[in-house]
């Protein structure tokens, strides 16, 4: 497996983690619904269940998760689409006007946040409100923006020195990205695993 294939594989792993998180979230609902159907005295709508499960996670946690998911979009795009190394036809340098601007990276990041980032930021953090998240886990999520900033910084460095490359920085950026993703999905994963045990 060459370097290029490895990086594509790593991207697939990231996507797989996201898909697993989504499936776990959906299956969590199915299992909870079955538990409640088995024990409830009355019929209920899915919306009723969602209302019943809802729990306030706190303004700080919500803010951190919203910010983190927006940063995650930026971090993944910077890591894979900043230089032509992995996707020669789809990258930041394909737009020379933006790439040569002093605020080019900022424009790129802003575009990512405004277009997919807001959509993801609005819908994904909402999923957390159905889980009982322990305070230590919430505290751990405070590190996510830092990890994502590390990843973004690595990508910016690689974009700045391009065409020179530095593998270690790329892998450091990837490692911090995947750790951040795991922490972000851990409330869902933990809730699902506990539910599986029930």
């Amino acid at each position: 497996m060459n370097e290029h294939e490895l990086r594509i594989l790593l991207l697939i792993i990231l996507a797989a983690i996201l898909v697993i998180g989504l499936l776990a979230h959906m299956h969590y609902f199915v299992r909870i619904t079955n538990h409640i159907k088995r024990t409830s005295d009355r019929a209920f709508q899915k919306e009723d269940l969602k209302i019943a499960l809802r729990i306030h996670q706190g303004s700080n946690f919500n803010t951190v998760m919203l910010f983190s998911w927006c940063l995650f979009v930026v971090a993944i795009a910077f890591l894979y689409f900043l230089t032509p190394e992995i996707f020669p036809n789809w990258n930041y340098f394909s737009f020379p006007k933006v790439a040569s601007d002093s605020f080019g990276l900022a424009y790129f990041a802003a575009a990512l946040i405004i277009l997919p980032g807001i959509l993801i930021g609005i819908f994904i953090p909402k999923g957390y409100k159905y889980y009982q998240i322990s305070r230590p886990l919430k505290q751990a999520t405070l590190f996510v923006p830092l990890l994502l900033l590390v990843s973004i910084s690595c990508s910016i460095y690689l974009g700045t020195i391009y065409p020179v490359t530095d593998k270690s920085f790329w892998y450091l950026g990837y490692a911090s990205l995947i750790v951040a993703l795991i922490i972000m999905l851990s409330p869902i994963g933990k809730g699902y695993l506990e539910e599986l045990r029930a």
Binding site: Q57, G58, S59, N60, F61, R135, K138, Q139, T141, L142
Partner: peptide, 14 residues
């Protein structure tokens, strides 16, 4: 129950 910094408490107490 909310996340917070050790050095300074932000936001409302949940």
């Amino acid at each position: 129950m909310d996340a917070n910094l050790v050095v300074h408490q932000f936001g409302e107490i949940l």
